[in-house]
Design a protein around this nucleic acid. Structure first.
Length: 513
RNA sequence: GCCCCCAUCGUCUAGGGGACUAGGACGCAGCCCUUUCAAGGCUAAAACGGGGGUUCGAAUCCCCCUGGGGGCACCA
């Protein structure tokens, strides 16, 4: 059991080599939740010791993504903190100092093998169907001689001197003890020839120095986990609680998402990259709720969670070590839930940019009035302009065919449109509670169905076959414009009638169905 | 090839020896509501990978197999 009464110090330690994705976001989220729950600290550390793989702008994108999700760090490269710097490229000397300590204590050694020799060695091992590993040539060097070669400026790396006998047991919080034979652990490189530490050294040194209590990271680290335990022990440091999260699988459940597949998702309006999600109409609240539940659960029925809920209810014990397939349709479901949970003013504020983007002039008062009409009808914020753009248009242009009522021909539809206009003109008030009873009365007398009459009005007034509720929409649009649009519909139907005039008629109904 | 991890409906999961005729959610199908589309309500179909143990009793504990996943760099 984990002790939640003690403040936890957790961290998210991404390398700025690409986009922040769902998996990374979830790792960050869990670490953040644990820190907040225990009133501890959550820190952001950038693991950028590989100079070759740096992607410009990646660090900034990661920070923006986390902020958008509502994951705020207490210490980090931008805001500093008592254990900085928080960028590993700025901690080069620290790692070298600790690496040297390891060498002096006999836990590591200098290695002068060239990359070419290493490569040839690996190929030979593969040919013999052996697992690739360092052959230990420099491990057998005389330490004093090696020291002299280093002092002379000879290129070198520092390798960890893994015990060759016995086993190493490390404890993962979710999986319990993991034991491996030491001979399967390679003499990993700790410091590269360019002087930068590799992950294995840097992560141990930083987590110790930064007083991290819980290392929450992806399960891709499981294979080198015993090595990390060995390094802690070589230093004589107390180990943190290790929590290796499961990986996310592609929706099919077969393997990780490839670069190509990730890109293809955009065609369906989905993405695994956090940066894309806002533009696709997703709420950060929905993202958080959704990813929190992929690998964690609270009980057998609660699924709606705000960040506050999660902070209160999160626990490491309820994490699931099994891999989880990404389920985008559930994502859509959560998005709908959170859209409907937003106060109207807030939903208006969130949806506004999507209207502006499409070139609509948005009147805030009017936008607020249509929110109740669309909040149950949009699965994503991006759908709002399609559903409700007509509220902000001067004119709508219905397709004339859409004005032909189901079950009626053009002439009959035109006649209906004229009668509807008359009723509308005589309406004492355009407000829904007044207009609707009048129109229903009209429907009753007409011998037609509500669907036929209201369908015609809907297309005429909104320009769409699918729209928010008709009478509420008319109220927002206003009497003047409603009549104007009915008038236009009549003209369109007249035009349609003329164009099909002489020989053939009655194609319309079949077209409609 | 070697090492490590995982295993309940299609998917996310609850379950940690008897409360299991295995619960919830998404999706799917049907029905209700309804002026369209949604939202909402109700109903249905849908799972313990296989084989051995342990036990009076196993989805739950152990072993093997199978399947899936991850890793084997001077990347993280």
């Amino acid at each position: 059991m984990n002790d939640y009464s003690k403040p936890a110090r957790t961290r998210f330690a991404p390398s700025p080599t690409g986009h922040l994705h769902l998996g990374g976001a979830r790792t960050a989220l869990y670490a953040y939740l644990l820190a907040r729950k225990t009133r501890g600290q959550f820190l952001l550390r950038i693991e950028d010791t590989d100079r070759k793989r740096l992607v410009p702008g990646a660090e900034e994108e990661i920070m923006q993504g986390l902020r958008w999700l509502g994951i705020q760090w207490d210490e980090g490269p931008d805001i500093g903190g008592p254990y900085g710097p928080y960028r590993q490229s700025e901690r080069k000397e620290i790692y070298q100092r600790y690496a040297r300590q390891l060498v002096e204590q006999g836990h590591a050694y200098y290695c002068f093998c060239s990359p070419q020799r290493l490569e040839a060695m690996r190929q030979e091992q593969q040919r013999r169907k052996e697992p690739p590993h360092y052959d230990g040539t420099c491990r057998r060097l005389d330490p004093v001689a090696a020291e002299r070669r280093v002092a002379a400026g000879e290129p070198h790396v520092i390798r960890f001197k893994t015990p060759k006998e016995g086993v190493t047991t490390v404890r993962d919080f979710l999986r319990g003890d993991i034991t491996v034979e030491n001979r399967t652990i390679d003499d990993y490189i700790l410091v590269k020839s360019d002087g930068y530490a590799v992950y294995h050294l840097a992560v141990v040194v930083d987590d110790h120095l930064m007083k991290i209590t819980h290392v929450i990271r992806g399960s891709e680290w499981l294979p080198t986990f015993p090595l990390h335990g060995l390094i802690y022990r070589a230093f004589g440091w107390e180990e943190p609680t290790w929590v290796h999260l499961s990986v996310f699988l592609k929706p099919s459940g077969k393997g990780k998402m490839s670069k190509r597949e990730a890109a293809d998702l955009m065609k369906d309006g989905y993405s695994i990259f956090i940066k894309d999600l806002r533009g696709l109409g997703y709420l950060p609240e929905a993202v958080v709720n959704w990813i929190a539940l992929m690998g964690w659960s609270y009980d057998d029925h609660t699924e709606f969670f705000t960040m506050q809920d999660l902070i209160e209810k999160f626990s490491l014990e309820r994490l699931n070590p099994a891999p989880a397939a990404i389920n985008f349709s559930k994502f859509d479901h959560f998005n709908g839930l959170h859209i409907r949970a937003l106060p109207p003013e807030e939903l208006a504020r969130r949806v506004k940019p999507f209207f502006l983007e499409r070139g609509y002039q948005v009147d805030d008062q009017r936008l607020l009035r249509i929110i109740p009409l669309i909040r149950e009808r949009i699965g994503g914020l991006d759908e709002a302009p399609d559903m409700a753009g007509f509220f902000f248009k001067e004119d709508v242009v219905p397709a004339p065919e859409d004005l032909v009522v189901k079950g009626l021909n053009v002439a009959e539809s035109l006649d209906l449109a004229r009668r509807v206009r008359k009723v509308l003109e005589d309406l004492p008030d355009i407000r829904a509670e007044v207009a609707e009873p009048f129109m229903r009365e009209f429907v009753a007398q007409s011998g037609l169905t509500a669907g036929q009459v209201f369908g015609l009005m809907r297309v005429a007034i909104t320009g769409q076959k699918v729209s928010p509720p008709l009478f509420e929409s008319m109220e927002v649009i206003g009497r003047e414009k409603v009549l104007q649009r009915m008038e236009q519909a009549i003209h369109l139907l007249e035009g349609l009638l003329q164009s099909e005039e002489p020989p053939s008629k009655s194609l319309d109904t079949t077209l409609e169905s």
